[in-house]
């Protein structure tokens, strides 16, 4: 029997270029995302992170270049094959993208109902397992409008993992969340990697989260990959743009903390 070779890189991107009209958004991206690890793609606003994610997900057609996901070339792939590939991917969108007419549990069950012929009891059990993993079990009957920011993200995460995907994408998990909720989500992401052995790609600009969860980091700026490496390698990078990004973010954090402190003192006075 022929042994199927193990895929070392879950995703391989080569010379990816994306233009919006005359504007170049991504300019020759080359990136390898190792299987079974957490890859964080970080960069400032407008750096091209979200466009890169949309290209990987097949939501945006690149101008040129290639994207290979789990051994399948995405560009020019037949709709049926893309369909099959997407069943191996889970995506937690920045705003959650929960369906407002469905409860938390119904949102999570949707992929199971669409792609499997499981009976009602099995669907219920699987839903409860995933809800428990993200600490949302007590809130399964709530509607999306009744959820807080953190609860929305955790529900979106549960929906993304309900089919046990090989790849999990998480767009800006920390955005709009307070530090403690953000830290909880970071721990959840690490727990998912360890327990479900999936490749996780996180798009973020939050430095605290980046260095806490990442096995590998790709820093993106003005549509180009500025640096890739382990967190230690990124910290030690001699690339000025990378250092500027790291220190600017650090300064912003200090300024935010200072402003928060002053607001607290003002309130007490």
């Amino acid at each position: 029997m022929t042994e199927i070779p193990a895929v070392e890189n879950a995703i391989t991107i080569r010379d990816l270029v994306v233009d919006y009209g005359t504007r170049r958004i991504l300019d020759g991206i080359n990136l390898d995302i190792p299987a079974g690890q957490i890859m964080v793609i970080m960069g400032g606003s407008g750096a091209g992170k979200s466009t890169l994610l949309r290209c990987i997900l097949g939501l945006k057609k690149p101008t040129s270049g290639s994207i290979n996901i789990l051994g399948t070339e995405v560009n020019g792939v037949r709709a049926r094959d893309m369909h099959a590939l997407r069943k191996q991917m889970g995506v937690a969108f920045q705003g959650g993208a929960l369906f407002s007419s469905m409860s938390v549990a119904e949102n999570i069950q949707l992929p199971l109902r669409e792609h499997t012929r499981l009976d009602e009891t099995t669907i219920e059990i699987m839903t409860r397992i995933k809800l428990d993993m993200v600490n949302m079990l007590p809130h399964e009957h709530l509607m999306p409008a009744e959820l807080s920011g953190g609860m929305t993200k955790r529900t979106a995460l549960a929906r993304a993992i309900i089919m046990d995907p090989k790849l999990l994408f998480f767009d800006e998990p920390s955005s709009g969340l307070d530090p403690s909720t953000s830290a909880e989500l970071d721990e959840l992401i690490i727990m998912l990697k360890n327990s479900m052995r999936m490749t996780i790609i996180v798009i973020t600009h939050e430095l605290d989260s980046v260095f806490k969860i990442a096995d590998h980091i790709a820093v993106i700026g003005e549509g180009r990959i500025l640096e890739t490496g382990t967190p230690e390698q990124i910290r030690a990078s001699t690339n000025l743009e990378v250092q500027d990004l790291l220190h600017r973010k650090a300064r912003e954090t200090v300024v935010d903390a200072d402003a928060h402190l002053r607001r607290l003192v003002g309130e007490e006075e």
Binding site: L59, R86, A97, P111, E114
Partner: peptide, 13 residues
């Protein structure tokens, strides 16, 4: 605009 249509596509629906 709330990415729900994108979410459906990503769920292969």
């Amino acid at each position: 605009i709330t990415e729900q249509v994108d979410a459906l596509e990503c769920m292969a629906i």
